Simulated assay, not measured.
Amino acid sequence: MPLPTLPFDVVVEILSRLPVKILMQLQCVCKSWKSLISDPKFAKKHLRHASQSLVLTVGELDFVVIANPLSSVFTEATTTTIQVDYPVKDKDDSAAIVGSCHGILCLSFCSQPMKVVVVCYPHTLVQGPVSNCRNLVKVHTLGTTSWRTIQDFPPNTLILNESGKFLRGAINWLAYRQRHSSCWVIMSLDLEKEFHREIPQPDYGGINVLSLNIGVLRDCLCIFSNADTFSDVWLMKEYGNKDSWTKLFRLPHTRNLGSWPLVYALYVSNDDQVLFDIEREELVVYNSRDGTFKDPGIQIIDKWMESEVYHESLISPCF
């Protein structure tokens, strides 16, 4: 009697939940599996189920990855780390994490820039006040050999010197604008249509906001509004819709963070525990339901670090 076979759509669901390393081995099982696993549509489906991990840069050149699924940070499970090799390793070069998108981790090195969208300012204007600032936006498409200049951002708008956050086909930056009064704005650049717009911010309720940071949580744009003694985390549930801003929770500061707090929420678990990066110096887990803190047990051997969450992925950068 022949062995029973599973419907192909059931096989696809099972395979889409397996780790990348196993899928690479399973490509050798048969031609149909090889064709499926190498299909870009399957890669996108796999990404939705892929496990998440935490990658850290410690100091200037040491990259460390939390080998366990990120969910283990919120449990009592032992968290192990592994050292990661990367293609450019020069003792005279400093490294940084630019960001992570669709399972691809982008790194930059001070002597080898790798960005594909650049916002730059003419040198003679950068020396003056923000009111005289004009910026240029240049795009480099992979496979070409030149940069293209596209529509400038509005004058008097200074993009902060941080990497943009990719979401919904657009890169989002926090910027500073000076007209009749100074204010913070979020600028969004649509990569397909190559036009920019300003993303509306939430109503902070009269709170004296010292600084803002932006990020991506639960596949939504988020804002971290930092005050003297706490930081509020806001989520934009419908991209571009001001009325969809929702305050997730308030993080009380456990120490004095100065006049420019740097607080980032890296990940929110299903039970509302949040992994925070505080001042690029420490990681803490905050339980927003009962207001308690705990140490995730990740040893930082240097006083400075950068952190990013990434997914296992079959998606190729297609260089």
Score class of each variant (00 low, 15 high):
Lys115Cys: 12
Val117Glu: 10
Val119Trp: 11
Val119Phe: 14
Cys120His: 12
Cys120Tyr: 14
Tyr121Ser: 10
Tyr121Arg: 09
Thr124Asp: 15
Thr124Ile: 08
Gln127Tyr: 01
Gln127Val: 12
Gln127Ala: 10
Gln127Pro: 00
Pro129Trp: 12
Pro129Lys: 11
Pro129His: 09
Ser131Val: 14
Asn132Pro: 02
Asn132Tyr: 13
Cys133Trp: 11
Cys133Val: 07
Cys133Glu: 14
Arg134Ala: 10
Arg134His: 13
Leu136Asn: 12
Leu136Thr: 10
Leu136Lys: 14
His140Ile: 03
Thr141Arg: 11
Leu142Ala: 04
Thr144Pro: 03
Thr144His: 06
Thr145Leu: 12
Ser146Ile: 06
Ser146Ala: 04
Ser146His: 07
Arg148Glu: 14
Arg148Ala: 13
Arg148Tyr: 09
Arg148His: 11
Thr149Glu: 15
Ile150Val: 09
Gln151Leu: 06
Gln151Lys: 01
Phe153Arg: 05
Phe153Lys: 00
Pro154Trp: 04
Pro154Glu: 04
Pro155Trp: 04
Asn156His: 09
Asn156Leu: 06
Leu158Asp: 10
Ile159Arg: 06
Leu160Asn: 12
Leu160Val: 07
Asn161Trp: 09
Asn161Leu: 13
Glu162Val: 12
Glu162Ala: 07
Glu162Gln: 11
Phe166Glu: 03
Arg168Gly: 06
Gly169Lys: 00
Gly169Asn: 01
Ala170Cys: 05
Ile171Asp: 00
Ile171Cys: 02
Ile171Tyr: 03
Asn172Gln: 02
Asn172Gly: 00
Asn172Asp: 01
Trp173Ser: 00
Leu174Cys: 01
Tyr176Lys: 15
Gln178Ile: 08
Ser182Asn: 07
Cys183Glu: 10
Trp184Ile: 08
Val185Gln: 02
Val185Leu: 08
Leu189Ile: 08
Leu191His: 03
Lys193Arg: 15
Lys193Pro: 04
Lys193Asp: 09
Glu194Tyr: 00
Phe195Ile: 12
Arg197Met: 06
Arg197Gly: 06
Arg197Ala: 13
Glu198Ile: 04
Ile199Phe: 01
Pro202Tyr: 07
Gly206Cys: 00
Gly206Val: 03
